[in-house]
Design a binder for these strands. Structure first.
Length: 831
RNA sequence: GCGAGAGUGGCGGAAUUGGUAGACGCGCUGGACUUAGGAUCCAGUGGCUUUUGCUGUAGGGGUUCGAGUCCCCUCUCUCGCACCA
């Protein structure tokens, strides 16, 4: 191709703002409920307005934008909203550090980040923008809270809670990651405190069951949710105390081993622990032990090398099936939170019990024998936890232990000493936060009437803004008399408001419903609009919310369903979890100094290049390795397209599209490649392989550059193929890089926005080639390649292959045993 | 420990159902144009090798006409849960 000097250079800063303005003025992304068009609700996890967008956002939202724009071109009615998860701690910390009010800090950040997102050219319907710190948002959250309270789904209780000293607040179990605070990573301690809970455990079975029906979710996330729910099926069994009234109830999943239970172990927090030792010579020791353990933090107690220790309480209980006197111990490895806080110890068949028994010289009885060998309790060096045949187990002797499980359960239920039970690891969701910057919990405490919900007509309970945030980080609300002091809605006497605020995960549990009718002022959302748009067809966000936000949202949606507000079971049909953005082998972070600022990238290379690189460098689920030279490559690619259009612009403006058979060989090749690319890119976008979709377009462009174009004596046919290829390239590329494609679309004389164009379709007929490349293998090894007619029969292919010079050389003097032909691909000759 | 996923050139990554391993991009090498090149264009680029091949997808074994892909064993890494009774 002849090279001409191009006056116009690709300068993204000149075109990007122009098109962003154009989209906004034409309201191209405003979604309306429309019958006759299939709806598509595309949602990306909304950001916390921390100040600036980061590369993780850029990646998440670029992925989403490709899907949104693609679906629009495919004829879907797309809802693609954006908003702000605007309550939360960093606003308070900023207030302390910079002496600026959390509200001002938050809204300033929102203003700045909205600008940044707009500079990226994302196709959001900004009319639907919401900020969760807006009373018009959280008033509905408070209303839902009241409905939940009415139904007993929100309740107050005193319990051992996770306390983050740095954040000065309570955390839900899901928010404690390996003993540390999910937000600030500092150590979490246990604390007795009263607070509000959502009864997520009421929905535990449904949440678990639906895990298997969420076929559009990554397996990984499903597994994590299942593990978190932690269902285990077993029995509760009663062990009567010896010489005392009462019993100890244990939970076990191994009732088949009960004949081998030789001692009992209680959690230090178990109510019987101190009682049982009272008055015995062991009382003091037990007290000291319990005291010591209770001061150890969660991290230490759950660490791998935590030594298993215990103390004898001085009491015994009786094994209900063997009559054996079981000494009762208290030990640090038994958790009060799980099961009943007491375990029957079977040292022969549980490794922990085994170690404990050896340490304190307790009795071992084998009750399950492996098939091959015979276990001797004195010679065992570890517990036997596999399956086997029951021994020393009275009426159950000789049975395989798996079979005995049910029989023992029946037997215990008949005798009334045990019952089948199911335990879950999932606890109720603690939503009280002792922080200021959150939605107030709409509850009033009255000395006479007790806990009284705020009247619905008095909502919202507005978070007062005229406060000073104390340096300690403690909430100013309890000291704020004008907020705290109120009247009891029931009896009218002076009363006090709840000063805890809600966990910010409550806001994010229903924002996607609110997007459907964001300005509705008669309820949380308009039912028919939610019915039209929901559920979310595609949700995109980080894997870090695999449990937290995604489990809470599933729960919340089910609550809304049971309140009669929505009529579907699950909020998110399909989920895509994108990987982290990495630089120099580590997650981008300020402390590591490897942060790439999107603002700088946009300034230097433009939004299109930034988007293109973040989509091209890795498939969405994987971590993305940020590479500055890779960005250059993306910019270079866009510059090449730019140049191609300007070099051929005059030809394109007057050209027609290809018609009929194309004679020029090279042109025909490009024409076929164009159609192949449409097919490939369409399929790749559908399965979220954006990197290979972009690679395919790059290939097409490389092919286009091979066209024999003579600017002075242009060949009509060649130019028509060029025009078709350029148009197609722009259309296929537009979801990835919308600005440059809009600009060039206009340059080649096309009318209107490219987003309003239908997605290109390929012609099956064009894909059919007259000749195909057939690979020849001999004994599975590649030896030669031949071109054969597409309609060649197997015999013809075989003949041609055997005539091939290279093949002849390899099969010389050998007998051909057989040949395998894969149509259109290869022939393998076995000899 | 349990569960899930992964291991492919110097690098990011392709190979959708067992059928040409390394698409595409980065980097690198050589060349062209140039006062210059960190612009652009052309050619090359897994390793070894007498250009004839041999070898190669963490390692070992297997199934198959044919294995990166399926099966078994081992190693390494990442993530999640972690004394869960």
């Amino acid at each position: 191709m002849e090279v001409f000097v191009v006056e116009e250079k690709y300068q993204p800063d000149k075109i990007e703002p122009k098109w962003q303005r154009f989209w906004e003025e034409k309201k191209l992304f405003q979604a309306k409920e429309e019958k006759g068009k299939p709806k598509y609700y595309l949602l990306e996890m909304f950001p916390y307005p921390s100040g600036k967008i980061h590369m993780g956002h850029v990646r998440n939202y670029s992925i989403g934008d490709v899907v949104a724009r693609y679906k629009m071109m495919k004829g879907f009615n797309v809802l693609h909203p954006m908003g702000w998860d605007a309550f939360g701690l960093p606003a308070e910390n900023a207030a302390i550090e910079h002496k600026v009010h959390p509200a001002k800090w938050t809204y300033d950040n929102i203003d700045y980040m909205r600008l940044e997102l707009k500079r990226m050219g994302f196709s959001y319907d900004w009319e639907r923008e919401i900020a969760t710190c807006d009373p018009e948002y959280y008033r509905w959250e408070q209303l839902i809270f009241l409905k939940m309270y009415e139904r007993g789904l929100a309740y107050r209780k005193k319990s051992q809670v996770n306390w983050c000293e740095k954040c000065q607040t309570v955390l839900a179990n899901e928010q404690v990651i390996a003993g540390s605070c999910w937000r600030c990573h500092s150590k979490v301690t246990l604390k007795e405190q009263e607070g509000w809970f959502f009864r997520i455990t009421d929905y535990v079975e449904e949440l678990l069951e639906w895990c298997d029906k969420l076929t559009g979710w990554p397996e990984r996330v499903i597994t994590m949710q299942k593990n978190w729910i932690g269902k285990s099926v077993g029995m509760e069994i009663d062990f009567p105390l010896k010489n005392k009234d009462g019993k100890i109830t244990v939970f076990t999943t191994r009732q088949d081993t009960i004949y081998g239970a030789t001692f009992m172990v209680l959690a230090p927090e178990h109510p019987l622990t101190l009682k049982l030792s009272k008055g015995s010579p062991y009382e003091q020791k037990v007290k000291e032990f319990v005291e010591r353990v209770s001061h150890e933090d969660i991290i230490k107690r759950s660490s791998e090398d935590y030594e298993k220790e215990g103390v004898f309480t001085g009491s015994y209980c009786i094994n209900p099936v063997t009559g054996f006197d079981m000494p009762i111990y208290v030990a640090n490895f038994v958790l009060m939170e799980y099961g009943t806080g007491a375990i029957m110890a079977v040292p022969t068949h549980d490794q922990r019990d085994f170690e404990f028994a050896r340490k304190y010289g307790l009795k071992l009885v084998v009750v399950i024998q492996p098939k091959e060998t015979s276990l001797d309790p004195d010679k065992m060096d570890r517990a036997y936890t596999e399956d086997g045949i029951m021994v020393n187990s009275g009426p159950f002797n000789g049975l395989p232990n798996k079979e005995a499980m049910e029989k023992i359960a029946d037997y215990f239920e008949e005798k009334g000493i045990g019952r089948r039970t199911v335990h879950y690891r999932l606890r109720d969701w603690g939503i009280s936060r002792q922080r200021y910057w959150g939605a107030p919990i709409p509850i009033i405490y009255c000395d006479k009437c007790g806990i009284v919900p705020v009247d619905e007509k008095d909502l919202p309970v507005i978070l007062p803004l005229n406060v000073k945030i104390p340096k300690t980080g403690r909430s100013p609300l309890p000291e704020l008399e004008e907020f705290v002091n109120t009247k009891c809605p029931k009896c009218g006497s002076p009363a006090k408001r709840e000063t805890d605020t809600m966990d910010t995960f409550v806001e994010s549990s229903w924002y996607y419903h609110r997007y459907c009718s964001p300005h509705y002022d008669k309820g949380p959302f308009e039912k028919d609009k939610v019915a039209y748009w929901m559920p979310v067809d595609q949700y995109i966000g980080g894997i870090e919310h695999a449990i937290l936000h995604l489990l809470y949202s599933r729960f919340y949606n089910k609550v809304l369903r049971d309140l009669g507000l929505v009529d579907f079971d699950e909020p998110f049909l399909n989920l895509l979890t994108q990987g982290m953005v990495i630089k120099d082998g580590a997650k981008m972070s300020k402390s590591k100094g490897n942060v790439v600022d999107p603002g700088y990238m946009i300034e230097r290379y433009g939004a299109d290049t930034t988007r293109l690189f973040s989509l091209f460098a890795a498939p969405p689920e994987r971590d993305l390795d940020w590479n500055d030279q890779g960005v250059e490559g993306a910019y270079r690619f866009l510059s090449r397209i730019w140049r191609l259009v300007f070099e051929t612009k005059n030809l394109l403006l007057n050209a027609t599209l290809p018609e009929g058979e194309i004679k020029n060989k090279q042109a025909k090749k490009v024409y076929q490649k164009t159609h192949e690319t449409i097919k490939k890119v369409t399929e790749d976008i559908e399965r979220f392989h954006f990197n290979t979709a972009i690679a395919a377009i790059m290939e097409l462009l490389n092919e286009v550059f091979s066209l024999p174009i003579d600017n002075r004596a242009p060949d009509k046919e060649v130019v028509s193929v060029l025009k078709d290829a350029v148009r197609t390239t722009l259309l296929l590329l537009s979801p990835f890089v919308p600005h440059i494609t809009e600009e060039l679309w206009q340059e080649i004389g096309e009318k209107g926005s490219i987003i309003n164009q239908p997605w290109p379709i390929y012609d099956e007929k064009v894909l059919k080639k007259e000749e195909k490349l057939i690979v020849i293998q001999i004994n599975g090894k590649l030896r030669s390649r031949i071109m054969v007619k597409s309609d060649a029969t197997d015999d013809e292919i075989k003949d041609l292959a055997l005539k091939d010079e290279k093949v002849k050389k390899f099969i010389q003097g050998k007998k051909i045993k057989k040949s395998i032909i894969v149509p259109g691909k290869l022939i393998n000759i076995v000899c």
